[in-house]
């Protein structure tokens, strides 16, 4: 039984005061905490975006079609994530892995788009050092991208480890997938907020600009 516990050692049902799993509770507390992390970054961006002394300004560089596509990719990755969990809970490990990999691939696609976007911005003369908009923008979206990257590694690790230790994604251990899923969906909803607050609700262009 002890050997069965890799990846969180909780194959057996724990007894807890609330009946809630420790790790799941930890993840929700972490997400509450991460709300404050991204909240502070978003506040930094919103406070700073209108304060740049030199361009490029947001309306000069943003590509709404590209970003909308990226937003769509993350939304779909949430769908594949939840389908992965459903498959694992049904005991269908094969489809669980397929959906997990699909989620990771959608995440990678999102990151590739972000890399392309950053690169475009750099070509147009916007770097973190250029102005306050650039500094705040790259910091906010960069930390979001870092969260996506971590998520991709996490999901991939679950798939790889499950090939060696199949029980890690057995229905009894579906929590391994569920908790990774909570993290992944959170990264998605952060993007929902960023998409609206950063991209769609741009400040009016400077007068005469």
């Amino acid at each position: 039984m002890q050997q069965a516990g890799a990846l969180g050692h909780s194959a057996e049902a724990e007894h807890t005061s609330t009946g809630l799993n420790h790790r799941k509770l930890l993840m929700w507390a972490f997400l509450a905490s991460d709300c404050l992390f991204f909240g502070s970054l978003i506040a930094t961006y919103l406070v700073n975006r209108g304060r740049s002394l030199v361009g490029p300004y947001p309306h000069e560089v943003f590509s709404i079609p590209l970003t909308s596509y990226s937003a769509f990719l993350l939304l779909m990755s949430s769908l594949t994530m939840v389908l992965a969990l459903a498959a694992v809970q049904r005991g269908n490990a094969k489809w669980g892995r397929v959906w997990l990999l699909a989620t990771a691939l959608l995440g990678i696609h999102f990151l590739a788009n972000q890399g392309y976007e950053f690169n475009q911005f750099a070509h147009e003369g916007l770097t973190p050092r250029t102005n306050l908009f650039g500094a705040s923008f790259f910091t906010l979206t960069g930390f979001h991208g870092a969260h996506v990257t971590l998520g991709v590694f996490w999901l991939t690790s679950i798939v790889v480890i499950s090939l060696f230790r199949p029980h890690t994604i057995s229905p009894k251990n579906s929590l391994n997938v569920e908790i990774a899923g909570l993290y992944w969906h959170f990264v998605d909803i952060v993007w929902i907020a960023i998409f609206t607050l950063v991209y769609l609700l741009q400040p009016a262009p400077p007068v005469g600009g």
Binding site: F37, S40, L41, T44, R51, S52, N131, L132, A135
Partner: peptide
Amino acid sequence: PVLTVGMLLLLFDRLFGTHFYAPVAGA
């Protein structure tokens, strides 16, 4: 996390040349 963000911005100012807290850049 709020302090973490505040300090990250400071760290970027010091290590990577951003201007989060530099009035010269409008901050």
